[in-house]
């Protein structure tokens, strides 16, 4: 009997599985569900409403999102006759997979035993994987054979060009500061509250806005802007497929938040990974997730405060303001490394 239990624990503890399924899918999904609730509740508070309530009045409508999820799951998935079926069905699924895949390159501890992959070039790998999923949003838009979907897909394409370089370059400012692509070393460089958000706030700011841009958060919710293009690339999707599309964007934002936490917010510090599964792996992961959730909450708050920029204005902001700032942030990182502040 105990053999079985041990075997199951061993399987769960197996880093690729733990990292990809538990940390990559289940935990972010839980956080995303919480964040969606929080987003609705925040917007409601700022807007002087109550928000989700009647589903479960005792816990302030906490089950509303679960109810929505069930509704989406049981809604009929309509696949119009005119769509390119293979692409139409596969695009959101691939986008979903690709948006959670970067989690394999994010270290949640510094004990090498728990790394799913060698961490030497993890920052580059994570950034490379995180930029893949938007391509499939374009595919989804194109496959839908709907004017609004195509416009939405094109907008996404415009935005990719402008935000990717910002997001990547501002994350790479950390590399400039530490001289390594290894995320574990980057976290180690942040011991003693020398978090990179303090040392290089500019890079954090540009990365933050870059994430907002890339996950179509307000004020850059352009590709899905309801009042011009209905639901952007996802106009023709319904039921669970639509849910997957929407969930993928949030999962992607969650992964970005994890990356931001590791690179700028000191990773698992102030906790120091210790011995064993609990203190060596689980506890640091929880610390990182808590920080990332706080970031997500800040992202969500902007929904209540901002409208959306126009597409060309967003691109203009990206290239004319954020890009120079990113370069400056990169230079700042280099300077700090040169003077040995790190």
């Amino acid at each position: 009997m105990t053999g079985w239990v041990e075997a199951i624990i061993k399987i769960i503890e197996w880093p690729p599985l733990w990292q990809l399924v538990v940390l990559g899918l289940i935990a972010p999904l839980a956080v995303v569900i919480y964040i969606l609730w929080f987003e609705r509740k925040t917007a409601a508070r700022v807007q002087r409403r109550i928000g989700p309530y009647h589903v479960s009045p005792r816990i302030a409508g906490g089950l509303q999102l679960l109810a929505d999820l069930i509704r989406y799951s049981f809604q009929e998935v309509i696949i119009p006759k005119t769509v390119d079926k293979a692409a139409f069905i596969s695009a959101p699924l691939i986008a979903l997979i690709l948006s959670i895949l970067p989690v394999v390159a994010i270290p949640f501890t510094d004990v090498p035993k728990w790394f799913p992959l060698p961490m030497d070039y993890s920052l580059i790998l994570a950034l490379a994987l995180v930029t893949l999923s938007p391509l499939f949003i374009i595919v989804a838009g194109w496959a839908s054979n709907n004017k609004f979907a195509i416009i939405g897909g094109m907008r996404e394409a415009y935005l990719i060009v402008s935000y990717e370089i910002i997001a990547i370059l501002s994350f790479l400012a950390a590399t400039a500061m530490t001289g390594t692509y290894n995320l574990v070393d980057i976290v180690h460089a942040q011991t003693g509250w020398k978090w990179f958000i303090v040392l290089n706030p500019l890079a954090f700011f540009t990365a933050f806005v870059g994430v907002l841009l890339s996950t179509s958060g307000f004020p850059f919710e352009i590709a899905e802007s309801e009042h011009e293009v209905v639901a952007g690339a996802f106009t023709e999707y319904s039921g669970l497929m639509y849910g997957i599309n929407m969930g993928a964007a949030y999962l992607k934002r969650m992964i970005y938040s994890l990356l931001l936490t590791v690179v700028f917010l000191g990773g698992w510090y102030p906790l120091k990974p210790g011995e064993g599964f609990i203190w060596g792996y689980l506890a640091p992961s929880i610390v990182i997730f808590i920080k990332a959730t706080i970031l997500m909450m800040i992202f969500s708050f902007f929904r209540a405060v901002y409208g959306r920029y126009r597409l060309d204005q967003a691109i203009e902001i990206a290239w004319k303001i954020l890009f120079p700032l990113t370069v400056i942030a990169f230079g700042l990182g280099l300077l700090e490394a040169y003077y040995g502040i790190i």
């Binding site: 807007q47 009042h227 209540a304 405060v305 901002y306």
Partner: peptide, 16 residues
């Protein structure tokens, strides 16, 4: 107007 610009708070406030 507010909701056209994606500004949901400006939708709810004037209506309230």
């Amino acid at each position: 107007f507010g909701v056209f610009l994606g500004h949901s708070t400006m939708y709810m406030w004037p209506f309230g």
